[in-house]
Write a protein that binds this DNA or RNA. Sequence first.
DNA 1: CGCGCATTTCGATGCAAACCGAAGGATTGA
DNA 2: TCAATCCTTCGGTTTGCATCGAAATGCGCG
Lengths: 223, 223
Amino acid sequence: MRADPDLAAAAALLADPSRAAMLTRLLDGRGWTATELAKVAAIRPSTASAHLSRMLDLGWITVHPQGRHRYFQLAGPPIAAFLESIALASPGMKARTPGEIRASAALRHCRLCYDHLAGRVGVAISEHLIQRGWITEAFHLTHEGRQALGELGFHSLADEGRGCMDWSERRLHLAGPLGRSLAEGALASGWFLRDPASRILRPTPLGLERMAGWLHHDWAGAS
Amino acid sequence: MRADPDLAAAAALLADPSRAAMLTRLLDGRGWTATELAKVAAIRPSTASAHLSRMLDLGWITVHPQGRHRYFQLAGPPIAAFLESIALASPGMKARTPGEIRASAALRHCRLCYDHLAGRVGVAISEHLIQRGWITEAFHLTHEGRQALGELGFHSLADEGRGCMDWSERRLHLAGPLGRSLAEGALASGWFLRDPASRILRPTPLGLERMAGWLHHDWAGAS
DNA sequence: CGCGCATTTCGATGCAAACCGAAGGATTGA
DNA sequence: TCAATCCTTCGGTTTGCATCGAAATGCGCG
């Protein structure tokens, strides 16, 4: 029998800036090596290794050995959702350099929230889907939605979705299996380009055109 | 312009067992003095005062001076929702004594999640309301819901609600203004008794009878 | 007005843990 | 088989901070 949840044990893992930096990096859903994550956190590989082993113990991340590399990855959507929810209550670091400011704006505009779309674009798409009746208010795909999205080139969509609170917009956006398959479709169709070193998604000219026609909203110049 | 949220800053506040214990205590929504919270966390009042001042700085709690007492309270529903979401990913402390086991069972059965009902009872009520069409899947009150609940004695209900993830049931339950007004109505009608030293709600005979007739589910003996 | 209680401030102490560098195991490629 | 790379383990150092007690402040009550 478990008693009150041990808030402190989970929070202690996050409380270290180095671990937080590594987890933020892992939030893009990809796998990274200990050396790469050490560079992100500005610490030595040996220190990063110790952190990673603690996060493995708590089940927050998984490891996939491949030769002499070990690729670390977030354990799954629940952990990602947990991290995003903490971002909601976090004070936010100050962006100082022009580069940081640009990156911050791009991150708020459109990003991958582990496996689905987030940011202004993600929220706008989700609300558009609800407004058109293509997904329910509980974020499940409707009959009409499956048909209409199929005509737009989105096939093999999952039925079940869920809401995920967006820390930059403070509104719900589409997540869950449906959110994942929709994001995969958009990336496969070339609507967005992934930034190789962050969660940022940059809309392509094709994506801008499609979204303008679909959402009746012109995103050009918004970032 | 804010950059990536500073996960570590928020988590560091929670990472201390003393602060976590005080925050868990504050999750019942009531106001508590520094001395009372010090007793909960098993520390000296001077230490508790230092913790409280840090939490004030981050805006997690507010203070209401009354004479020589200063009552500390959670800053609002967003902070409460944040704490509950962390509970979802926390390992959970081991309950040892028979008293702890009983308290843990009661907490999972029915509790106040800051200002609304949670636990098995809270989730069952929420899902029942959705199933009957009294609230939408997005947790807003419907026309029929307002009428039907009015006949059951719930007046002055808010229209707008939202989902809140239940850490013990791992399902959504009704929160937001609607959830708050519903909980207030149930408490005012004497369906539950508040435990003076915790978030636990204990159904009264009246409450058990009403819920049995309403939910077609007999809760007697479930705790 | 002065005592008592709740609270806060300050200085000192002690412990937990983040960090690094060196060393060792594992895997790849030459 | 040997060198290079990636990762981990271990020992030692240092820093951050939770904690306490003592003293100061603020408020109510007799």
